[in-house]
């Protein structure tokens, strides 16, 4: 039984890594077409870096990710605190609304936001599709993930700690800042990290809410791939995989140290 399980696991890991390794290998391959390795080259990386637009796409991607993560983390954390601590009308409705961005297919979320921006633009002539609309769209799904992650942490929090703070004379705001927030910080960080990676990864919703001049890296990869295989894309993919691995390893090291 153990041997069957480990054989199976070996196959699955091969399946998971074979395609990625092929891309990495081909990004250093001299041959422009095919998978026969004809010699080592850094030419595709050189070409990639000589393409000034790439830098612009990268900047766009990072602007969207940073701004949307910052906003959604603040809004999501506050929302989680309010949901756990207070009773109010329509609370149940709000709780269910929270799950909608998590479960609705990306394509539906994408076209619904496209329609919203279109309706508003028809009415007041603003906003046109741009980085701004992408950011609004990203916040809309990130906020749900941040709220749910932070809430999971909040419900584990011992409420007597907050009562103790108030007993010692802290106001509501002081209690939140001095006691609640530090204790849920790991949850807030985890939510922010998730939001950030969701933003970097998103293609579909960006696709529907982007306009001219707001191309992000995933949009660029998509349009390039539609035109056919190019070794520059191998190189770009390899770099992105490399950054992913690096960030994950740094994250693991960081957690281990804590």
């Amino acid at each position: 039984m153990k041997r069957i399980l480990s054989f199976h696991a070996g196959l699955v890991f091969a399946f998971l890594y074979l395609p990625i390794l092929v891309i990495v290998a081909l990004s250093f391959n001299q041959s422009r077409f095919g998978v026969r390795f004809t010699g080592f080259t850094l030419e595709w990386y050189a070409r990639l870096f000589s393409n000034e637009r790439i830098l612009e796409y990268l900047t766009n991607t990072l602007i969207v990710a940073v701004v949307s993560t910052a906003v959604s983390t603040v809004l999501g954390t506050l929302l989680a605190v309010g949901l756990v601590r207070y009773e109010f009308r329509l609370k149940n409705a709000l709780r269910y609304l929270l799950y909608v961005p998590v479960v609705v297919p990306d394509v539906v979320m994408g076209i619904s936001l496209l329609l919203l921006f279109d309706v508003v633009r028809d009415a007041i002539g603003w906003p046109r599709l741009s980085l701004f609309t992408i950011i609004l769209a990203h916040i809309s799904f990130q906020i749900a993930y941040v709220t749910l992650v932070v809430r999971a942490r909040l419900v584990l929090l011992d409420p007597t700690l907050e009562e103790a703070a108030k007993d010692l004379g802290a106001t509501s705001w002081q209690t939140f800042r001095e006691v609640t927030l530090p204790l849920i910080m790991p949850g807030v960080m985890a939510g922010a990290l998730l939001a950030f990676s969701l933003s970097l990864d998103d293609f579909v919703i960006t696709f529907f809410t982007a306009g001219s001049g707001s191309t992000t890296l995933p949009l660029y990869i998509y349009s390039s791939v539609k035109l056919g295989i190019r070794p520059e894309i191998h190189a770009l993919s390899t770099l992105m995989v490399g950054v992913t691995v690096l960030v994950i390893l740094l994250g693991v090291l960081f957690w281990k140290k804590r």
């Binding site: 890991f13 998971l16 074979l18 092929v22 990864d201 998509y222």
Partner: peptide
């Protein structure tokens, strides 16, 4: 970690990798 790495690798790259495998001059 080996499962998490593909999980966080960009979605389009994961799809693109299979074009490289399946295309006419592919793996």
């Amino acid at each position: 970690l080996l499962v998490v790495i593909p999980f966080f690798t960009n979605f389009l790259i994961r799809v693109y990798a299979w074009i490289v495998v399946f295309q006419k001059e592919g793996l």
